[in-house]
Deep mutational scan, measured.
Amino acid sequence: TGEEYIAVGDSTAQQVGDLTFKKGEILLVIEKKPDGWWIAKDAKGNEGLVPRTYLEPYS
């Protein structure tokens, strides 16, 4: 379980453990880390770190 967020920009994984996503994708945020990198899952079930500045709450 988690909260749904929509990507407001494209982000390409810079290192192992990062999640690549495109603008408009809905991501499920699993954990919000205080350093600004959140753990999220995409629609295909891929999981990784995403920069919170690229996400907005999805409603």
Rank of each mutant, 00 (worst) to 15 (best):
K23G: 04
I30Y: 06
E56N: 06
G9W: 14
W37E: 05
E25S: 07
E47C: 14
G48Y: 05
G2R: 09
N46C: 08
V50K: 00
G9Q: 15
E3N: 08
D18P: 06
G36Q: 04
K33P: 07
R52W: 14
N46Y: 06
S11R: 15
D42A: 02
K22R: 10
L49V: 08
K44T: 09
T53G: 12
I26Q: 03
V16W: 10
L19N: 01
N46D: 07
D42W: 02
G9D: 12
L19Y: 02
L55E: 02
D42E: 01
E25T: 07
D35A: 03
T12H: 12
K32P: 03
I26L: 08
I6R: 08
R52D: 14
L49W: 11
Y5S: 00
L28P: 00
E56M: 12
Y58L: 13
E47K: 11
L19H: 02
I30N: 02
A13H: 10
E47A: 09
K44H: 14
V8M: 10
T1L: 13
E3Y: 09
P34R: 09
E31T: 10
G36D: 06
G24R: 01
Q15F: 11
D18E: 15
K23P: 03
K32S: 03
Y58D: 03
G17E: 05
L49H: 08
P51C: 15
L27K: 00
E56I: 13
I30H: 03
Y58F: 10
N46E: 07
D35H: 05
T12D: 13
P34F: 09
Y54A: 13
D42Q: 01
D35M: 03
I6T: 04
T20F: 08
K41V: 14
G36T: 03
G2S: 09
F21D: 01
P51W: 15
Q15M: 12
Y58A: 09
T53S: 13
S59A: 12
P57R: 09
D10E: 07
E47I: 15
P57E: 08
K33G: 11
I30P: 00
L27I: 07
D35R: 01
I6S: 03
K23T: 08
K32W: 04
Y5R: 01
L19K: 01
F21C: 03
G45P: 00
V50G: 01
W38C: 03
K23I: 08
W37P: 05
N46A: 07
V16Q: 11
T20K: 10
K22S: 08
W37Q: 09
L28N: 06
I30A: 02
E4I: 14
P57V: 08
D10T: 07
G9N: 14
D10A: 07
F21H: 00
A7W: 06
G24C: 06
D18G: 14
L28I: 13
Q14F: 12
I26D: 00
A13K: 07
W37T: 10
I30W: 03
S59H: 13
Q14R: 11
S59L: 13
G24D: 05
K32M: 07
A43W: 09
K41W: 06
V8C: 10
L27V: 06
G36F: 04
L19W: 02
